Simulated assay, not measured.
Amino acid sequence: MLTVKLPQIFQVHQVPRIFWEDGIMSGYRHPKSSALDCILSSFQMTNETINIWTHFLPTCCAHTFSTMSARARHVCYFCDYGALSLYSLGCAFAYGAYAMPERWVSGVLHRYFVPAAAFNSFVCTGLSCYSRFPELERPRLSKALRTAAFVYPFLYDNIPLFHRLLFCFGSDGACDEAVAGYCYHLVFALLTGFLFTSHLPERLAPGRFDYIGHSHQLFHVCAVLGTHFQLEAVLCDARSRRAWLRGRLPPPAGPGTFGTAGLALLGNAAIIGAFTAALPRAPGGSAGAAESRAPGAAGCVGRAQ
């Protein structure tokens, strides 16, 4: 009979410091897991299981393979940051096409909204990737840089929504449903940011939320819910404003849209490649450097749960 042995899990002091999470005391996977171990670990209860599945379903696998080595952890999250940057660009495409306030349509901001968002994606990826370099020596700076990297494009993308919420989009009652959806989206976005920066509730009770209920899991759930309401609102705008927009704007040009997206993809891939190449020279960038800073790391295998 075929049996599968699931990977062992460890306490926080048994893994290198680069893998530590605030307030999470147990449930860590081996810091040099094989790819097979990473996949198998998604079917056992660890402190990453819910993170894996809430990320894995939309095909972003950073959490799944982040324990193969310290270097692999960095590279996985570099790719995750790039995906989030491209998501922010996708938001700009949708908002530029359907969500602009009436008075801004065909204006300067409308014309340059998407190109500026493409540039923002480079800033977001570059700054968030760089934030992993001082992670061990200056964790507060690392967190601040990473937070700023995602807050900045979020604020830019949502300028049209902020205007619509402030002025209720004039007297056009057909867009009330869309505005309500955007409100829900922004509420969940604020919750997402709060959970990302606060590390609550695990900071208040270390060890109590290692497997279920810690901030990163709640962060993922809020992000998914916020995206759901965002898509519903954009679809509502597309239905209610399509005829009005056709009379004022040329039809969307596929080559221009795909061209911008393609250039953004290549540019973000180049940024990720550059930071990946720089990892061996970064503090804590290699597995050996990270492990040398972790108390008890050398004996992590022997002291498995």
Rank of each mutant, 00 (worst) to 15 (best):
I212R: 06
R241N: 14
M68Y: 07
L2P: 15
F150A: 04
A233T: 10
A99K: 07
C76N: 11
R242Y: 10
A94D: 09
C222M: 14
G226E: 09
F229H: 15
D210V: 06
T260V: 14
Q44R: 03
I212V: 14
D157G: 01
P139D: 02
F10P: 08
F10C: 02
I159V: 03
V187M: 12
G170Y: 05
A290I: 02
P16I: 03
L36H: 02
S128L: 02
V108W: 07
C76P: 03
A99T: 01
L263D: 03
N47L: 02
D157C: 07
F119V: 07
S69C: 05
P280W: 04
M68A: 11
G213P: 01
A274G: 09
P134M: 02
H220M: 03
S42W: 05
L235T: 07
S198W: 03
V224M: 14
L265H: 08
W20F: 06
T64S: 07
R111C: 03
Q11C: 08
A261Q: 08
D237C: 13
G273C: 04
P295Y: 09
P255M: 09
P252N: 09
R208A: 13
A174T: 11
S66K: 10
A282D: 01
A253M: 13
R242N: 13
V151F: 05
S215H: 05
Y77H: 13
Y28K: 09
T64D: 02
S88K: 03
G262Y: 10
P153D: 02
A264H: 13
F258R: 12
A290E: 04
I212C: 13
N158W: 04
T260I: 15
L36W: 15
A269H: 09
A118L: 05
N51E: 00
V224S: 15
T67L: 08
D210M: 01
F209A: 00
T197Y: 00
V151A: 06
S215G: 11
A223W: 09
F113K: 04
C168W: 00
H74N: 15
A178R: 04
H163S: 01
P206I: 04
L145E: 00
G173K: 07
F56I: 03
